[in-house]
């Protein structure tokens, strides 16, 4: 079986996997990072979105072996051990952008990628970007509000850091 190694949430990890192992399986089963979820089998729901080398991808549509040598960030990697929420996570809490929480990790990871690409997205751009993330609970209204607020907070944080 091939061995893979990658940096996940700042830590170097490795393991041997069957080639057919998906990145999401490696993350959930080998690394026990169960915040990344599987909500469909056609790569549409987005519950499994993580960042690979800085871009959001569906970890159910990528082989673990294809992530060999990559840098991966999952939802667990945002707040870190200090339990300080990322501004996007904070915005979801403040704006009631989640209910059952199942789509939430993918939603947050996707949102951060959006803001990385487009620091001041309009509501229309947010809705458009979320094509790959399905939520059955919220009706998206509060998710859109959360992402707009999260984008503003990320901008503020970046400005403060500069």
């Amino acid at each position: 079986m091939p061995s893979v190694s990658m940096t996940v949430n700042g830590k170097q990890v490795s393991g041997t996997v069957e080639p057919r192992t998906l990145l999401v399986q490696f993350i959930r089963e080998n690394l026990h990072l169960t915040g990344t979820h599987v909500g469909c089998d056609t790569s549409q729901c987005g519950a499994c979105v993580v960042h690979v080398d800085g871009a959001s991808v569906k970890s159910c549509a990528m082989l673990a072996v294809e992530a060999d040598g990559s840098t991966v960030t999952t939802i667990e990697g945002l707040a870190g051990n200090a339990d300080v929420l990322h501004p996007m996570q904070e915005a979801f809490r403040d704006n009631h952008g989640l209910q059952c929480g199942f789509c939430t990790p993918g939603m947050v990871m996707s949102a951060i990628d959006l803001v990385n690409n487009n620091p001041t997205p309009t509501d229309h751009e947010i809705r458009d970007w979320l094509e790959g993330n399905i939520c059955r609970c919220t009706g998206y209204h509060n998710i859109v509000k959360s992402i707009a607020a999260g984008a503003a907070a990320m901008k503020g944080q970046k400005a403060a850091a500069e």
Binding site: T34, G35, A79, R93, L98, F102, V108
Partner: peptide, 14 residues
């Protein structure tokens, strides 16, 4: 929300 937002929910498949 804290546990859900940080990936620390505990769903059956977890």
């Amino acid at each position: 929300d804290f546990r859900f937002l940080t990936g620390r929910g505990n769903y059956t498949d977890d």
